[in-house]
């Protein structure tokens, strides 16, 4: 079972130390997005990297259209990996929707996590005026789905076959290995729907694990107002404003990201 999970989620464990730290990618990306950040923690942590089922080098055959309709299905992936590695009180670092996935996992099994580090999180991307501004109107998010779909044209038919119960085609695996941040378009579309059209504002108050929110400048996906909202509604949370601009500080500003995570862990663990 454990081996099966480790291979299913393409789990990589590096480094040593009593404490463990788990890095979760954001929407549609694989674990390599943490390449510039994760190694810095290997010296005194067991560093765990993984891919969600349907992303990166995960086992596409394990993809279940029902399970992955909501972020809870992805949260179960996180819990599965924790159990397979017998992790307890691990630090969970998640980017974007990955932060939300870790948060949902921590609500279900708080004892597995010691701290959450949330990089550019948003509990809800849709505007819900007058009290909430997630940043987007529905048609804008639908436009994103459409754009994703068009960027898959040409190889879409090959990939669509995977979710249509023909998982044993070797060329599919090959395609996935050769592309970063690319997934089967059917899976990506479902993930995008789960990620961008969900509303987890109600879940914030259920979190009991302390957390750090890293807020970038000029992040159109998770604007500063959303970071503030998270901080206000998330118990035991700290909010840190970053110098980094955009939505992917772990890639564009790995040093600052490492520094802030390190500082927080030093102060709180």
């Amino acid at each position: 079972m454990n081996e099966a999970i480790l291979s299913r989620n393409h789990v990589k464990v590096k480094g040593s130390g009593k404490a463990s730290i788990m890095f979760a990618p954001g929407f549609g990306c694989d674990q390599s997005v943490w390449n510039a950040v994760a190694p810095a923690f290997e010296e005194d942590h067991r560093v765990i990297l993984f891919d969600y089922v349907g992303s990166g080098h995960s086992d596409l055959r394990a993809y279940d259209l029902n399970r992955y309709q909501t972020l809870d299905g992805y949260a179960q992936d996180v819990l599965d990996v924790c159990e397979a590695l017998d992790l307890k009180e691990t630090v969970f670092v998640g980017h974007s929707v990955g932060a939300l996935i870790g948060m949902l996992a921590s609500i279900r099994r708080p004892e597995l996590f010691s701290h959450l580090v949330m990089v550019g999180p948003s509990p809800c991307y849709l505007n819900d005026p007058p009290e909430y501004y997630g940043g987007f109107e529905e048609e804008q998010l639908l436009g994103l789905l459409e754009m994703m779909e068009k960027n898959y044209i040409g190889w879409a038919t090959v990939f669509a076959a995977t979710v249509l119960n023909q998982p044993d085609r070797p060329e599919i695996k090959e395609e996935l290995e050769s592309r970063f941040c690319s997934t089967d378009p059917v899976i990506a579309r479902q993930f995008a729907k789960a990620a961008f059209f969900s509303d987890h504002r109600e879940d914030l108050s259920k979190v009991t694990v302390p957390s750090l929110i890293l807020q970038c400048a000029d992040d159109i996906i998770a604007p500063a107002t959303v970071g503030k909202y998270m901080h206000q509604h998330l118990p035991y949370s700290s909010l840190k404003q970053m110098e980094a601009r955009g939505h992917c500080p772990h890639m564009s500003h790995p040093d600052e990201t490492i520094q802030l995570i390190g500082d927080y862990l030093k102060a709180h663990v």
């Binding site: 954001g26 929407f27 549609g28 990306c29 997005v33 987007f136 109107e137 804008q140 998010l141 639908l142 436009g143 994103l144 459409e146 754009m147 994703m148 960027n151 970063f180 941040c181 992040d219 159109i220 996906i221 955009g246 939505h247 992917c248 890639m251 564009s252």
Partner: peptide, 14 residues
């Protein structure tokens, strides 16, 4: 706006 999102999610990371 969708293109802005797409660039953040795919264009720049890629």
């Amino acid at each position: 706006i969708p293109a802005q999102l797409f660039c953040q999610l795919y264009f720049f990371p890629l």
